[in-house]
Design a protein around this nucleic acid. Sequence first.
DNA 1: GCAACTTTGTGCGTGCCTTCACAAGCGACT
DNA 2: AGTCGCTTGTGAAGGCACGCACAAAGTTGC
Lengths: 249, 249
Amino acid sequence: MTKPPHAGSADVAAARLRSIPEASVARLAVYLRMLGELAEQGAETVSSDELAAATGVNPAKLRKDLSYIGSYGIRGVGYEIAALVRQLERTLGLDHLRAVALVGVGNLGHALAGYSGFGGRGFPVTALFDVDPDLVGIHINGIVVEHVRAIPQVCAEREVTIGMIATPGPAAQGVCDLLVSSGVRCILNFAPVVLQVPHEVEVRKVDLAVELQILAFHVARKHLAGQDPATVNGHVIEHASNGSGGMLP
Amino acid sequence: MTKPPHAGSADVAAARLRSIPEASVARLAVYLRMLGELAEQGAETVSSDELAAATGVNPAKLRKDLSYIGSYGIRGVGYEIAALVRQLERTLGLDHLRAVALVGVGNLGHALAGYSGFGGRGFPVTALFDVDPDLVGIHINGIVVEHVRAIPQVCAEREVTIGMIATPGPAAQGVCDLLVSSGVRCILNFAPVVLQVPHEVEVRKVDLAVELQILAFHVARKHLAGQDPATVNGHVIEHASNGSGGMLP
DNA sequence: GCAACTTTGTGCGTGCCTTCACAAGCGACT
DNA sequence: AGTCGCTTGTGAAGGCACGCACAAAGTTGC
């Protein structure tokens, strides 16, 4: 199941896409952002060492990550930023916009709806949903909040390809089912629930409470272990000129 | 019950803590939440199969995870929920409260400050900071927003052990340095920047834009590959009675 | 008290990810 | 034109995590 039938460029691309390790994909997105910042600063090329330092990654790992999308580096020089950005965007599927629907306009949802980092990066939030009558009908960032029952119709109309769920836990599975039945195949879940989905649907979960608990574990560990620097396997990040130019709220 | 007639329980605990794989720690937090829900529903014991199904994890992996914190299961029966919860809380360092400071009360920060999932789980947000004069002085959930320059003093007073950074990217490193110099050793970073910290400081990063880009990659993959069900390595999660009882916004 | 059944705890093989180390390739300088 | 220095791309090794499969241990029924 690994061999492409014939060697047309589309098949090659598909084979490559499929074979990129999940861990690498996550880092590619980070490289892409850093490259954008470097381009803004007027840089035209970067070496793997520079880019690795700026993103806190091992240089060899970075080169291997980039090798998955092809050879776009010049030996003795580095990577041409513009070309690399273009290729990364194509690989990550950022060459056309992906409409995003957000369900749950409560506390967190409201913040996500107003988060400028999405629209500016090719992910316009084009639909908002909730069940609360007090919320349905209001506008956030120029988008009107619709009732959850309108999900199938609105998602179809606006060609939504990604759904974000920021509802309370108990409501999440129902909302998820609605999204899936509306053709949404990728879901970003903020609710503290494990979603049950058909195998063709991709779910990523962001669990803030779990993140804090992981940190708490490390606090406890440091306390118990005393703070012997040798035994703590903390990751040290070398130098790296401070990257600036973000885009959060 | 089974084995450990504790000999030097502190040392044993420390050794154990150090050796728990990072991936397991993340799952332990998930188990803990699910166990809490089960307890609320009146259950007294769970088998590894039940808990695994409810959390979308392989049963063997779950048992191995739990084995890292000791033998608290009863063969032929399962795990006694109350005892397991207690042990998990101790292992994750949830046996006493951890004061959290949040820097950046903009769009996302405001939502995090109001997020009930933190305080209810042993992570009271006890300090808020920003640089915006319009925000400094206002109250959110009964907490007053202070100026960033007050970080050292306030963090010391309120014994903050965890810092959350929800500032724009360019401000993050400066804020981080302030937190670290105030004695904060664990940081949850929402800013799209790789923080440079001393090796004894633990940083976890939540990057919403990257999460969406990873999803976009999978959209692109599905498109290119057609949707042959066999070649897509999606994870299928079996049955599992729908968990309810969450605690998001 | 014994046998059959259930469920935990774990040794082990497998595969993925990371990291090292080095050859190949490219540009610059003489 | 040739050589030198720098940087990429990758083969190979090590480590970690996953999941199977089974023995150990407990419970239930007779």
